[in-house]
Amino acid sequence: GKMTGIVKWFNADKGFGFITPDDGSKDVFVHFSAIQNDGYKSSDEGQKVSFTIESGAKGPAAGNVTSL
């Protein structure tokens, strides 16, 4: 299901970062391709987002990331 969290950091040059879930669980990796914004796929530190957890090649990753 959908979770909410805060972007801990995001490196636009490398195209990835981490989200800290609101439920206190482990930080989740986020790749720019998962960000659902139109246009520039980046996110700012401290941005509140909703997301799903997908199982990626390197473990859990955020999917369907949407700014709230």
Rank of each mutant, 00 (worst) to 15 (best):
W9C: 10
G5P: 00
Q36D: 10
T20P: 02
S43K: 10
Q47I: 11
G63I: 14
K41M: 12
V65E: 02
G63Y: 14
K14Y: 08
S50H: 07
V30R: 00
G1V: 13
Y40I: 12
V7M: 12
D27E: 08
G17Q: 00
H31P: 06
G17C: 08
A34P: 03
S42K: 10
V49H: 00
G24H: 06
V49R: 00
G46W: 10
H31D: 04
M3K: 11
F10Y: 09
F18S: 01
K58N: 11
F18R: 00
T66M: 11
G1K: 13
F16V: 03
S42T: 14
V7H: 01
G1C: 14
G17F: 06
G24L: 04
K2G: 07
S25A: 06
G5A: 01
K26E: 11
V49P: 01
S50M: 09
V30T: 01
Y40Q: 09
D38E: 12
K2Q: 10
P21M: 04
V28Y: 03
F29V: 01
D13E: 14
D13G: 10
V49L: 03
M3H: 11
P60K: 07
V30W: 08
G56P: 03
S67A: 14
D23M: 04
D23K: 05
I53K: 05
Y40A: 10
F18K: 01
K14F: 09
V28F: 03
D44G: 14
G1N: 13
T66K: 09
K14G: 05
F32L: 10
M3G: 04
K41G: 12
D22L: 06
T66S: 09
G17R: 00
I35N: 03
V28A: 01
T4I: 07
S67P: 14
K58C: 14
T52H: 07
V30Y: 14
F10K: 00
I53C: 08
F32Y: 12
I6M: 07
G17L: 05
P21K: 00
A57M: 12
K2I: 13
K8Y: 05
I35T: 04
T52C: 10
A57S: 12
D13N: 12
G46Y: 10
N11T: 02
I19P: 00
E45V: 15
G17V: 05
N11P: 03
W9R: 00
S50G: 04
T4E: 04
D13K: 14
I6K: 09
E54M: 12
P60E: 07
V7Q: 01
K41P: 10
G46R: 08
T20H: 06
S33N: 08
W9L: 00
Y40D: 09
N64M: 08
F51D: 01
G63K: 15
F16I: 06
V49E: 01
G15W: 03
N37Q: 13
T66D: 05
D22K: 01
S50V: 08
F10M: 03
